[in-house]
Amino acid sequence: MERKTEYSVDDLIDLNVLQQFQDSFSAATGMASISVDNKKGSVTEPSNFTDFCMKFTRGSTEGNKRCISCDINGGKKAASTGKPAVYSCHAGLVDFAAPIIVDGVEIGAILGGQVLDAPPNEDHFRKIAREIGVDEDEYIKALRKITIVPRAQINAAANMLYIFANSISKMGHHNRLLVDETQKFQTISESMFENIGFVSEVVNTFSKQIESLIKISDELLESSTISKNKVKETDKILKFIRDVATQTNLLGLNAAIEATRAGEFGRGFNVVADEVRKLAVMSVDSAKKIETILDSIVVSMNSVESQASKSYKIIGEHQEAMTDISEKLSTLNDISNKLRAEIANLKNSIY
């Protein structure tokens, strides 16, 4: 089960507004009032507090002890019912407690009263003065300044404070929840912005690597073309060598025939002619071997060129995909920036 957030009165209600309302309420009704937080105590200045209560009753040790007991009992009654509690204090005045409830939890109250709901019995109050140890005449003099308010009007006043306090606390609570959700949304937005930035950097790095691969593929294809052209040039040279070797072989053969005709005089020349023919045959064989090797090189170069072309095509497709991703990330980045700005505006409007 999710734990409810614990709030203070000043977390949800503007205390300046609360103070102004409280002062206006007291001036209009003649009743005293003060706002309290369950943890922090008083959160506003007292409004229209009477000398009877503050100077004399609460000003004495015994009187203050009795007042605190009344305050606790009144607060408990209001907390148990979740409604305003109107009660008579130990000194005979009428007080009330209007609870401030948020999400089913009482966080404070507006306390008030310090009025009479009927003309007082002065003998009774003289008795109280003696019990709490204050001057009877001064006590009665202060009593006579107490406003007399019908009980129904006191009940209505307490209910009005209850409605007001809980209405503005509810609005404050909703604003607070909105602020919390906005903060969560901002955290998500910031995380999204950072992730977009990270992905953009990765994509940019990958795009550079692709560009480098394209460059290498271009160079490889160019080198392959150059090598094939050089092989073609070598083919021409080998053809020339074969032609020369063939002609040399024919010349050697003719020389051998002529040396045979010369008889004893051509014997030495016949040996030379044979060696020339052997060299011609060896040249032709070597040329064929070189041609075979070069043919193999050409086949390999063609294979390399084919694979390079395929790679070039795949890399080109990847480059187009990276470009498309970069454009989408740029759009997301713009959206994220606008979102951050809107969240900032929303937070400013809430506060």
Rank of each mutant, 00 (worst) to 15 (best):
N159I: 10
V9W: 00
Q20K: 13
I241N: 09
K239Y: 03
A78C: 05
S227Y: 04
L116V: 04
E317N: 12
Y87A: 03
C53T: 10
A280R: 00
S303N: 13
V304M: 09
V271F: 04
F96H: 06
I101R: 00
K127C: 07
L143T: 03
K40M: 13
N159C: 01
P99W: 00
I13Q: 01
S200P: 09
K232I: 07
S303L: 14
G41Q: 01
V149I: 15
S8N: 11
V86Q: 00
Q319H: 15
K141N: 08
F240R: 06
E136V: 13
D243L: 04
G197C: 01
F21H: 06
A32W: 11
G75Y: 05
D243N: 09
T248V: 08
I210Q: 11
I237W: 05
G197N: 07
G268Q: 05
V281D: 10
N64A: 11
F269H: 09
T29R: 10
N270C: 06
S286I: 12
V298F: 06
A344S: 10
I146G: 06
I343P: 02
F96Y: 08
G266Y: 00
I100N: 00
R151G: 08
A97I: 02
D135W: 01
G266W: 01
E136K: 07
I154W: 12
H90A: 12
K289G: 12
S47Y: 02
L93V: 05
A118P: 00
N204M: 10
A129T: 05
S217R: 08
D11Q: 01
L332R: 03
S60F: 02
A129C: 13
I343H: 03
L18W: 04
S303G: 04
V115L: 07
E45C: 02
D71V: 03
V276R: 10
D334R: 08
A152N: 15
S286L: 15
Q20P: 01
V179L: 15
D103N: 05
T187R: 15
H90M: 06
I128C: 11
M160Q: 10
S309F: 10
Q307D: 15
Q114I: 04
E264K: 12
S336I: 02
M31A: 09
S223K: 05
S283K: 06
D23K: 12
T44I: 00
D334H: 08
S200H: 13
T50H: 04
P150R: 01
N249H: 03
I335M: 15
T44W: 00
E136W: 09
I297V: 10
V299K: 13
N254W: 08
I216K: 07
T234E: 09
V298R: 12
T5H: 02
D334P: 02
F206Y: 13
T260H: 08
I325K: 04
G172Y: 13
V299C: 11
N333L: 08
L93I: 05
D11G: 02
S35T: 10
I110D: 01
I350D: 04
